[in-house]
């Protein structure tokens, strides 16, 4: 561990704002990158299920 205490770790020698801002936004973008395809796939599956139900009803 490079830092002596947790508050020092958060402070980053006065550069805390910059470091945490950069890491925070990157983390958000990475999570968005994961979530988008997962949601897209769910939507595709839902659409297919709806389509099948419609076909069953009509037949």
């Amino acid at each position: 561990m490079y830092f002596d205490s947790f508050s020092e770790f958060l402070n980053m020698g006065g550069h805390g704002l910059y470091v945490w801002l950069a890491y925070g936004l990157s983390a958000v973008l990475i999570v968005i990158n994961v979530v988008l395809p997962v949601m897209h796939k769910r939507q595709l599956i839902k659409e297919q299920a709806r389509k099948q139900r419609r076909e069953q009803q009509s037949s």
Binding site: M1, Y2, M12, H15, G16, Y18, V19, A22, Y23, S26
Partner: peptide
């Protein structure tokens, strides 16, 4: 990168941004 790598002698801890940039 955040907790164990040493800081840069010139830039201090803001150097840690390199690990994403």
């Amino acid at each position: 990168a955040l907790a164990f790598a040493p800081e840069d002698y010139q830039q201090g801890n803001s150097f840690r941004i390199i690990y994403i940039h």
